[in-house]
């Protein structure tokens, strides 16, 4: 039953994509890829330690509006609402004496408002740049150092991102998109397992690919 439903969705998307015409209007999209969380500095009363991550998953669901070519004063572009989530496992923690192993993960759930400026080449490829602003919940999930619980807490912060990407019209309504986003938040503050505070930071390099369906 589930497989039939999936076939139905794909068929509907393809039919829409290859049979209708492009114009300004709403679109939806999905993106998925890899998030490379940057090394993060965590500061507590004992000083600063750096935390390193493994690459992890990163995905988005998008609802947007394409300006099309109906607003020449603004130029070609899009405005979109992006719901995204990502997770990166901790790899290690670097202290004054060197690096040791760390476990747990940094997880992100956020909603972003993105503005995208587009340029279409003669060959039809879309080149775009993106700026986004929003809100993020950063969760340090069961982070431990050498097996000792360190922090298990979440914090909400202002988030921002900037990126570049390329798109190809598979049809007038169906666009394949690959892109890069640099994503960061204002510095979150967590409560450690011992009840004291940890000032942290969150930054990630997002490499994504996905599809957009323009209505």
């Amino acid at each position: 039953m589930r497989k039939k439903f999936q076939y139905l969705i794909v068929t509907a998307l393809l039919v829409l994509g290859f049979s209708t015409s492009a114009f300004a209007g709403l679109y939806i999209g999905v993106q998925g890829g890899t998030g490379f969380a940057s090394d993060a500095t965590g500061s507590d009363a004992d000083g600063n330690a750096n935390f390193t991550y493994d690459a992890g998953y990163d995905g988005s669901i998008i609802l947007g509006y394409d300006l099309g070519e109906e607003h020449p004063g603004i130029g070609k572009g899009r405005l979109e609402l992006e719901f995204n989530t990502a997770s990166n496992d901790l790899d290690g923690a670097e202290f004054l004496e060197g690096e040791v192993g760390a476990d747990g993960s940094a997880e992100r759930t956020s909603i972003m408002v993105n503005t995208i400026g587009e340029y279409t080449t003669q060959s039809g490829m879309i080149i775009y740049a993106l700026l986004g602003l929003g809100w993020a919940e950063i969760n340090l999930d069961n982070v431990s150092v050498l097996g000792t619980p360190f922090v298990n807490d979440s914090n909400n912060q202002l988030a921002y991102q900037a990126g570049l990407g390329f798109g190809w019209n598979l049809s007038e309504h169906f666009v394949f998109d690959v892109g890069y986003r640099y994503y960061a938040t204002t510095d979150p503050e967590f409560t450690k397992q011992d009840g004291t505070n940890l000032d942290y930071e969150y930054k990630s390099h997002r490499v994504l690919a996905g599809f957009r369906l323009h209505f």
Partner: peptide
Amino acid sequence: LVLSGCWTDDPTRPNTF
């Protein structure tokens, strides 16, 4: 934005773990 977030400072915290 990308350049502003690509490095971290040297750690100053002793390993208390």
